[in-house]
Structure formats: structure tokens, C-alpha cells
Amino acid sequence: MEAIIKADRLSKDYKIYKDHKGYLGALRNLFDRRFTLVHAVNDVSFKIYPGELIGYIGPNGAGKSTTIKMLTGLLVPTSGEVQVNGFVPWKDRKDYVKHIGAVFGQRTTLWWDLPVRDSLDLLKHIYEIPSDRFKQNLNSFREILELDSFMDTPVRSLSLGQRMRADLCAALLHDPKLIFLDEPTIGLDVVAKQRVREFIQFINAKRGTTILLTTHDTADIAKLCKRVMIIDHGKILYDGEFDELIKYYGGSRVLSVEFAEFYQYPTIDQAKIVQRDGVNVIYSFKRENISASKLIHQLSEKYRIRDLEVQDQAIEDVIRDIYENQLLYN
């Protein structure tokens, strides 16, 4: 299958200007400006295939939004090549954007003063969506996203969650082949998040729309994406299956035990006691070193157990561990 997004050694540098100080400095700034370069995206290559739903994650300032801006044609790369859906995004802007959709969680595509309905109707004309297609799409999205209660409310008076749902609808009315979602769940409550996730899943599964999603909520990724790309300091550090990542780096697991009697030293090989409170003891162990069943077996041979529970390390903690300890750098 042919890749729908091809990024080849993509880089983007920003110039950060430093102003001269003082009143005369303001004059001098006009002619002589000093700057430093920020390598926001640094030599990044990847391919994305039709129908994929990919999570693009990384800490703040990693370069996610910059990548998305290049993919959507808003920014011209400093170097490298990008081809999306057969177009070079920034070159063939008008033709290219007909086939994509984009939602930026921080801002809206809709008209601030217009009711949602009018905004959507305007998009119909802008994208030249055939009437029957428009009606079909609108009806089905209205239902899933539950837009009906605020169809006639001006966008400026919508809550964040309502606005995001309206924006998602707006981004998909013209049946784009692929959509870019930059933090679509930012600031939403649990219920709204769930609704947005279901919608993303629906679009990807039922329509085969390719989706590139950035988020800071690991649960989004865990629920939606098979493949993730992790970027930090402008470099892609990981590109592969999400489960693999968690399996590999989230190796440590937790075993909580309630013993039937008190033991002075309830030790066991290959597991560490991390917490202890009377008969309640918590062990941590590595998947590579020992399996859970073996550990439980060994424990129950030496001690009398009343109750126990095995847990994986929370996904969020795994990701934080990766970011903080830079586990992906070799």
C-alpha cells in the first residue's frame, strides 16, 4: 500500500529574536536584529498509511504542533520533504486542503458570532459539499456528537466541550481523507473526552479516515492508537506499536499482598518490597526477571496469603518515566 503521508528528513527552525535594550535599541532593532535558532523539528522521517490512527506524543515544546503545521501546509519546512495525499502541502494549498481536515484544540475554525448551524452551512459552500452528502454527514455527526442542544447557539457562548464537538463535526463534513487533531481533548471533562474519543474511533473505523492525533492525555492514546510516534526536542524517539512500548518500558509491575499472619522478613528473590504496613506488603518486580505467576507461586510456598493483586504500572507513569528519564535516548 502507498503511504498517504511521507515525511522525509523534515526539519523546521524558528528564529527567536532578541531585542536590543533601551530607547535607541528600539531604533536599532529595525536594522540589526540578533536571533538564535530553535530546531523545533529536527530531521524527522516517517510514513503513515491510509486508515491508520496514529498518536503523536511528546512533552511540551517537543515539536508536535510544528510538525502538524508543516503537514497541513501552514508552515514551509526549513529542509526536507513532505508529501501528503500526493500533494506538497504548502505548494498546492487550495487543492490540498480540500481533502484534509484539521482541529486545533486551542482555537476554533468556526465563526465566532454565528450559530453553529450557520457556521456549518457556510462550510458547505466553502468546501462545495453536495447537498445530499452534507445532509447525510450532518445527520450522522449530529447524533454521535449530540450537537442538537446547541445548534442555534453562537459559537462564542459554547462551552469548551460543546465547541470541540462542533469543531470536530466541522472538520469532517467534507469527507476528508485524513484529519489532523492537535490536542482535541484539551480541557475537556471525562464525559466529553469519552464522547470525542468514540467519535474519533467511529470515523477511523467506519470511514477509514486516516487520523494523526496529538495529545497529552495518555488515556487517549491507550484507547485509540495502535501506533505511536514519540517526539522530543524535535527528534522522533520512538515509532511503533504502543503496546510494545509499554511492555518494554513499563516493565515494572506491582504485587500487593495481604498475608494471613505477620512475618518479620517476608522477602522473596527478584522482587523488591516497596511498602509495608503490618500484614500488607507491596512488592515491585520486573516482567523480564520473573513472571507474576511464578512470583505468586514462590510466595505462597513460603508464606500464608489471604489476598493479593497484580497491577501494571499506570501507563501515564510509564510515559512520564520515558520523558523524565529520557529512556529512549541511547
Binding site: 533601551g22 530607547y23 528600539a26 531604533l27
Partner: peptide, 10 residues
């Protein structure tokens, strides 16, 4: 604060 708007003032 007013003094910091140098370019605008100029």
C-alpha cells in the same frame, strides 16, 4: 510598563 512599549512609542 509604558516605558517598555518602545517600538510602539517610537
Amino acid at each position: 510598563r509604558q516605558l517598555t512599549y518602545r517600538a510602539a512609542n517610537l
